[in-house]
Amino acid sequence: MAILFRSTRALESEIDEYLDDVSNGILVFIDGVKNYLSKNVDSFKDNLTTIDKLEGKADELRRTIENNLYTHSLIPEHRGDVLGLLETIDDIIDTAKETLTQFSVEKPYIPESLHQQYNELAETAGKAGEAVVHATRSFFKEVKLVQDHLHKVYFYEKEADKQGDRIKRKVFEMDDLELCQKFHLRYFALHIDTLADMAENVADRLAIYTIKRTI
């Protein structure tokens, strides 16, 4: 019995650690966008390596958690839900890593007049991600707080959509850019915004799972 309790505790801390990694990944992502825009090449490279490591570690943790849930047949009622939840959260850190990699590969030219808006977009999308990580923690520990975090996710996701929209409009109104550059800029606004969309996906699932979580 003691062994079972210890493994339960270990699994709880693994889930916490996993969520920590996702949360750190989001912070690194915001920092990475900032560093790219301010041309801090070394720091940006540093961000890339960090997010790569975090993503790898998160993947590994997720697999261990899923494996443990199944081998010990834990939480039979919520096992499928938790599995789905962990996998969709994984999409957030995956998107963050993917976007930073795209910055590093494609090296988009972003006019200085747009820097602040891109930074703001990254921050808003990041906030949506942060809020959904909080919501997920609450789902495990304090279910009545989930709703409080979820409404923030929806709010930031909408904000990110609006900011992305503003960037695109502004980009296509600029006369000093080639059409291909405009496309490129539009795609990068879209990539950053995807992080908020991923957060929204997780939030949608959580909203349903929370109803099931009450006895």
């Binding site: 079972l4 309790f5 339960t8 889930i15 939480i75 495990f140 520990k141 304090e142 979580r213």
Partner: peptide, 9 residues
């Protein structure tokens, strides 16, 4: 507030 997994245990 009991953790989902502790509750399970």
């Amino acid at each position: 507030n009991v953790h989902l997994l502790s509750m399970d245990f």
